[in-house]
Amino acid sequence: MTAILETRGLDKHFGGLHVTNGVDFSVGDGEVHCLIGPNGAGKSTFFRLLIGEYTPEGGQVLYRGEDITALKPFERVRRGLSVKFQVPGIFPGLTVAHNLEIALQHHLEGASLSSEIRRLLDFLNLKEAAGERAGTLSHGQKQWLEIGMAISLKPRLLLLDEPTAGMSPAETFATGEMVQALNRDGVAILAIEHDMAFVRQIAQRVTVLHVGRIFAQGSTDEIVANEAVAAIYLGETEAPRRKQDA
């Protein structure tokens, strides 16, 4: 499989903390890839390096063969990367529909813009909330809205940082189906997840990150069966787990 995204020797420190330690990593074109690892492993930092929010001290980020290490985030987004961060990033004072409009106005206007907003509201289960301020949504709904904005850009590679946090098992499953639907349309997906049921549902490949390094890589079954991986989660509150039905 050709890689849509690749990192070579990516490095980042916070003070004395080596948060990203010479990471060589790749996501295949059209692949659904999950990134797991204990809290503080450096997963979110790695995402911010990929999108350009942080500048690495060493190494490169390549997107479809092009070195994008020096590009600004908005330039990477325009090339087809799109991201949903761990903390939902929405426009809290604007209505839900207006949030989507701002994402969609890049490539749509007039009647087709309005109809796409309606379609997305329906798809995201946010039809009733269309006129509400986005800041008043529940955490799970904010996640959906941000995912909606991220996919509005028609990305080729979608980065999702803990997309199902705050969602019920049913909502988590629906998110998984949405990810699979996007993937069938040819979108590659890299998702940071703790919920192993979700990982099993979507992932074609899993990478474990631990203290800034790639610790293991393989299929979901291989990773779940890996005792060394289980060991690094010991004493962690964020161990791979299933959401419990309440």
């Binding site: 999108i51 929010e53 600004k72 985030p73 908005f74 987004v77 325009r78 799109s82 991201v83 961060f85 990033g89 929405i90 426009f91 809290p92 004072g93 604007l94 701002i102 994402a103 890049h106 941000e146 904005m149 991220a150 850009l153």
Partner: peptide, 16 residues
């Protein structure tokens, strides 16, 4: 207004 509300998200939507 998107920038006023959340500049990071505005940039992540591809706006300079």
């Amino acid at each position: 207004v998107a920038i006023r509300e959340n500049p990071e998200r505005a940039e992540m939507l591809g706006y300079d």
